[in-house]
């Protein structure tokens, strides 16, 4: 069964909130995806629907061509770790959490789990509640990775981890993704550190999917146009402007989309400076409150 994720016009409402608003996308699988969005943008909601944690209100979700909600054939191949994970209950010992995972998760790999426990130096005999936030997150990561599920999702699972441990996490994710074809979705709002891992990027804002693009294309598709305010305005007219900054007579406009050679020549002739735009900037501008796009 291939793990193609097909989301069509997906809407999720609860507590009078529209958490997801007609989201449509197709994830072909075997890749590392970055799901970006500010807090409350719908990342957790989308992942929760994909993992069958929640039933969607409208639209359609299929994984490997099958409906997801309460369908063991799909959910047994999907693992979502929200924060430090729903399988890590405070009252339980770390060893019990792992033992229960081994019993309940059909694809569980105990040897790999033991390896990861060592890697993140987790104490087996302590209760989850007595662990630091970082250690709890690490335990969630162990569960996600050792589940060896074809679709594995980590929702802000790096929270509380120090930088060296985060890098261990990234390295483990990368090694896993290369060792066997697994679709991995990492949701985050801290982009700079992880973005090189992504093959494709999805950006959610206010429950809507505002962008789904290959990471490399995205890196090439933004551009900061800087120069005299009037000249900049004339140049960006008709282009998709994500945001603008102004200092005196100087203005900088973030343009989304590739400029062709003629446009670049025109900019240079008009005395405008064309600079690259970082993914992080692109993200910030795409998800700015009150963004006209």
């Amino acid at each position: 069964m291939s793990m193609v994720v097909e989301v069509d016009q997906l809407t999720l409402r609860y507590h009078d909130v529209t958490a997801l608003d007609e989201v449509s996308c197709t994830l072909t699988g075997g890749k590392i995806y970055g799901l970006l969005g500010r807090n409350g943008s719908g990342k957790t909601s989308l992942l929760s629907v994909l993992a069958g944690y929640r039933e969607h209100t409208d639209g359609q979700v299929r994984i490997g061509g099958l409906p997801v909600f309460d369908n063991a054939e799909v959910t047994s191949r999907v693992c979502l770790v929200r924060g430090s994970g729903d399988a890590t209950q405070n009252s339980l010992k770390v060893a019990d959490v792992l033992e229960f995972a081994a019993i309940l998760r059909t694809s569980w790999d105990s040897d790999y789990a033991a390896e990861l426990v060592e890697l993140f130096s987790l104490p087996l005999n302590k209760t989850v509640g007595s662990l630091s936030h970082g250690r709890r997150s690490a335990l969630g990561i162990v569960i996600g990775l050792a589940s060896r599920t074809p679709l594995t999702m980590f929702d802000e699972s790096y929270l509380g981890l120090d930088a060296p441990t985060r890098y261990k996490f990234y390295d483990a994710v990368l090694a896993e993704a290369m060792a066997q074809p697994r679709t991995i979705i990492l949701s985050t709002h801290l982009i700079e550190e992880v973005s090189a891992l992504f093959e494709e990027v999805l950006i959610l804002d206010d429950g809507k999917l505002v962008l789904h693009e290959e990471a490399e294309t995205l890196r090439a598709s933004g551009c900061a146009v800087t120069g005299d305010a009037e000249v900049v305005d004339r140049f960006v007219d008709g282009l998709r402007v994500l945001g603008e900054k102004r200092l005196g007579r100087t203005k900088s406009a973030m343009v989304y989309g590739d400029l062709d050679a003629e446009q670049r020549a025109g900019a240079s002739a008009a005395g405008l400076d064309l600079g690259p735009l970082a993914l992080q900037d692109l993200f910030v501008h795409l998800t700015e409150p009150g963004d006209p796009s």
């Binding site: 993992a51 047994s76 994970g85 229960f100």
Partner: peptide
């Protein structure tokens, strides 16, 4: 409160 959560998080179904 503890085990339904764990059960579902490991991809098991509500029906079970």
């Amino acid at each position: 409160s503890t085990y339904l959560r764990i059960h579902l998080s490991h991809g098991r179904t509500r029906r079970e």
